[in-house]
């Protein structure tokens, strides 16, 4: 596996702060949870209720805009994707199905829910972190490393 150059911890923390500020901003001004899987489901018409559709669309469009701004003026992220096509498709299917079934992902449960100590979000976060660790351990150290 190619190792990443270590990320300056302050940069990681600053990126996290921006994400947290985003969540805080949406909550204080519109009263909504910045859950990305839920917003995506609203935009695509998969979810029938939640954030108004045009607001969800504005949010989802903002994500790549924000990434472009950082890329242009602050730092260019180095992107390394080693997964094969079938693996990426399988991953997408699982993430789509799982986030609907569990009502959220890393943003809605992991950031917003954990911030307010929601028992459901704490449980969901523990669940996805655990299987994330297990899948990587199996893929890298049992299958690839064998």
């Amino acid at each position: 596996m190619p190792a990443n150059a270590p990320l300056d911890p302050l940069v990681a923390l600053a990126g996290g702060l921006l994400i947290g500020l985003a969540a805080a901003f949406l909550l204080l001004f519109s009263g909504r949870i910045a859950g990305i899987s839920g917003m995506f489901a609203r935009v695509t018409g998969i979810a029938d209720s939640g954030t108004p559709r045009k607001d969800a669309l504005a949010f989802v469009l903002g994500l790549p805009i924000g990434a472009v701004i950082v890329n242009l003026w602050i730092r260019q992220p180095e992107i390394v994707v080693t997964s094969s096509v079938p693996l990426i498709i399988a991953a997408g299917l699982l993430v789509g199905f799982g986030t609907r079934m569990g009502n959220g992902c890393t943003s809605g449960h992991g950031v917003c829910g954990v911030s307010r100590l929601s028992p459901r979000s704490l449980a969901a976060t523990a669940s996805f972190m655990l299987t994330g660790f297990v899948v990587v351990a199996v893929a890298r150290h049992l299958i690839a490393g064998a």
Binding site: L94, G98, M101, G102, H109, A123, A124, A126, T131, V134
Partner: peptide, 12 residues
């Protein structure tokens, strides 16, 4: 649901 999401997350 969380577990399925985590599995997909870990995959790619």
């Amino acid at each position: 649901g969380g577990a399925i999401f985590g599995a997909g997350w870990g995959l790619a």
